[in-house]
């Protein structure tokens, strides 16, 4: 897991590049945001019916929500139930949905039939026939609107650094999926192109790989992005929600996840939503000293306000 004591130091641990083709720049703040996301992901279990609202005021919003989100997804444990494909297929029985992966792809679909009368055993699954042993891991999942297959992304420097490589396949078939990001969708998607790498390593990870947000036709995903401009109601049933910018923070009143992070971009003039957050803290919140609570210290230039409300 991400160690914020190492990450929070002023000396950069990571470099960030705008995309695969650009030069990477050592940046101290990337590690800070990853660490904050990781700390929150670990803290969420101890909230017991309270909501922790964290407001970060940052010089610019770029990458902040996605980095915090990545720290979260790398830290949250995958769901139980994933295991040896033959065993999972037996226990699951027919007409149930599951995720599976082999060396190249992740699949999601209905398990139609398990045939153990042939050797090696075969399954009719996700619209095709497979040898069960061609899969490396399988896990039950909720039914979707369609069966899908997607190429596996392989973890790099940062996944390795945080230790999430150990259960990467488990994460791909049984992700926690308990994080939502709300903001200007085109900007969040552009942030996902960025490549983060531990300084000294060669194989960086795209933020897309770490955050792995849902896309149309995806077989697996770690998180979900919602466009604040078209959202009618705040996303429900998540453990963590990141509200990125003015348009997203206005959903704070109807966001009931245990952890909410509001990212306020100081380079934007409009402070209306920050005012609402301050009022919320004053009227219904209990102030929280974030460094004490999470052991996370804001670097110079980042302001952090924390409070808790009853859910």
């Amino acid at each position: 897991m991400v160690e914020s004591t190492r990450l929070g130091a002023a000396r950069p641990v990571f470099s960030l590049a705008e995309n695969d083709d650009s030069v990477s720049v050592p940046v101290a703040w990337a590690g800070s945001y990853l660490a904050l996301g990781a700390r929150l992901a670990r803290h969420v279990g101890s909230l017991n019916g309270r909501q922790l609202v964290i407001t970060l005021s940052v010089p610019r919003r770029d990458y902040v929500a996605c980095l915090i989100g990545s720290g979260w997804t790398l830290t949250r444990p995958p769901l139980d139930g994933a295991g040896d494909p033959l065993q999972v297929a037996r226990e699951l029985g027919p007409r149930r949905w599951c995720r599976a992966l082999n060396a190249t792809y992740v699949y999601v679909g209905e398990l139609r039939e398990l045939n153990e009368t042939v050797q090696p055993a075969r399954v009719r699954y996700a619209g095709s026939h497979f040898q069960v042993r061609s899969f490396l891991k399988m896990a039950p999942c909720a039914p979707l609107d369609g069966e899908h297959r997607q190429e596996r992304t392989n973890p790099g420097s940062v996944v390795r650094y945080t230790g999430a490589t150990r259960d990467w396949e488990h994460r791909l078939v049984a992700p926690a999926q308990d994080l939502a990001l709300v903001g200007i969708e085109s900007r969040l998607r552009a942030d996902l192109e960025a490549v983060i790498c531990r300084i000294g390593d060669e194989d960086g990870d795209r933020l897309e790989t770490l955050l792995m947000p849902w896309r149309r036709g995806a077989a697996t995903w770690f998180s979900r992005i919602y466009s604040s401009a078209t959202l009618e109601e705040a996303p429900a049933d998540y453990n963590g929600v990141v509200l990125d910018g003015q348009g997203a923070i206005k959903f704070i009143g109807e966001t009931f996840s245990p952890v909410v992070v509001c990212v306020v971009d100081r380079s934007v003039a409009d402070e209306t939503q920050a005012e609402n957050l301050v009022n919320m803290r004053r009227t219904e919140g209990t102030a929280v000293d974030v460094p004490k609570l999470l052991g996370w210290h804001p670097p110079v230039g980042i302001e952090i306000m924390g409070f808790e409300v009853r859910l």
Binding site: T55, S57, V264, E271, L277, D289, V290, V300, E303
Partner: peptide, 12 residues
């Protein structure tokens, strides 16, 4: 100052 400065850690 920012609106949250009075209530935050790391206020600028």
């Amino acid at each position: 100052t920012t609106l949250i400065a009075d209530y935050s850690q790391g206020a600028i």
